[in-house]
């Protein structure tokens, strides 16, 4: 019962919901950046939503099945093929012993999530298998290494079901803008900068990884340049002295000292996780109350669908 990795690509890592309760020790959150696609990939096989999946970044990734099994794919379309036959994300599928699953290159999105029956096996380090290379934590051997050629992936159980993605599961593209809960040091930015922040096009920079994504656009000015470091939440939009925002993601450092506009909503984090460098997007302020209501509705509808 295993899958042999033949090509590891730019970055492929085991991820789950990440670590909680350990950030006061300097340990980051980690976990699937597009947490929605990760959860849906599990749902397609009837797994617990937080079971470990493989997060495949950009492609150039391939594996060979050493046994017959079912797998599921969700998230980015990385041009996947099963023995040469195109395989669209959003479905569970059978793979037979000897067959090869190849992810070539991104057609839409950045990160694909591959799930296996019961979730992939990996040791829990501080309660999670989330791979964080910088911290030497998580992954197949617990030491933070990404998946490499020759690695064997095992899984924990049997698929209880094989599903296709329901219509309402599709995450809308961030055309309307990424929702931002205002807060933190918002009051310290100049009026012009606040106008620019929410009325300008922002371009996703090449410098984008699991720690953060840099945006290029108008220069934002803040009355304070540095502050005493404090804990920073997921999706925080920090603005260093060059005035170009950096949106902090799952592998961010636990504390930071740059002024912030606020933080993306969880849905917006999942959307940003699928934006290629060069993508043009907007930031859209959302009232906290409404953001909380919408997030609860999203989780509740997910709960309903996933427990049917």
């Amino acid at each position: 019962m295993s899958l042999l990795i033949e090509q590891a690509g730019a970055l492929a890592t085991l991820q789950d919901a990440g670590r909680s309760g350990v950030r006061h020790l300097g340990v980051t959150q980690g976990g699937a950046v597009d947490w929605l696609s990760h959860g849906w990939a599990n749902w397609l096989l009837g797994n617990p939503l937080q079971a470990p999946t493989v997060e495949i970044t950009l492609g150039n990734f391939s594996l060979r099945a050493q046994t017959d099994t079912c797998l599921a794919l969700c998230g980015a379309d990385l041009g996947a093929t099963l023995d040469g036959e195109p395989l669209m994300p959003g479905r569970a599928f059978r793979i037979r012993e000897g067959q090869t699953l190849i992810f070539s290159q991104p057609r839409q999105g950045v990160r694909a999530y591959l799930a296996a029956p019961g979730g992939f096996s990996a040791p829990a380090m501080l309660g999670s298998c989330a791979t964080v290379r910088r911290e030497q934590l998580g992954g197949l051997n617990g030491d933070g290494q990404p998946l490499a050629k020759g690695d064997l992936l095992h899984w924990r159980g049997h698929a209880t079901t094989m599903r296709n993605l329901p219509e309402q599961a599709l995450v809308p593209l961030p055309g309307a803008g990424l929702s931002v809960v205002l807060g933190a040091q918002i009051g310290d930015f100049t009026g012009q900068s606040l106008f620019d922040a929410f009325n300008s096009d922002w371009t996703v920079d090449q410098r984008a990884d699991r720690m953060g994504v840099r945006l290029l656009g108008p220069t934002l000015r803040c009355a304070r340049s540095a502050m005493i470091s404090e804990g920073v939440p997921l999706g925080a939009i920090q603005v260093p002295a060059d005035g170009q925002p950096i949106i902090l993601l799952n592998d961010r450092q636990t504390i930071g000292g740059y002024p912030r506009l606020g933080a993306l909503t969880p849905l917006a984090v999942a959307q940003l996780a699928q934006c290629m460098p060069g993508t043009v997007l907007r930031l859209k302020p959302v009232a906290l109350e409404r953001a909380q209501r919408e997030q609860r509705r999203l989780l509740a509808s997910w709960q309903r669908t996933t427990t049917e």
Binding site: G21, V22, H24, I228, S229, E230, G231, P233
Partner: peptide, 10 residues
């Protein structure tokens, strides 16, 4: 999660 730092708690 609770993240203490110098002057703040997250």
């Amino acid at each position: 999660d609770l993240v203490p730092s110098y002057t703040t708690l997250l």
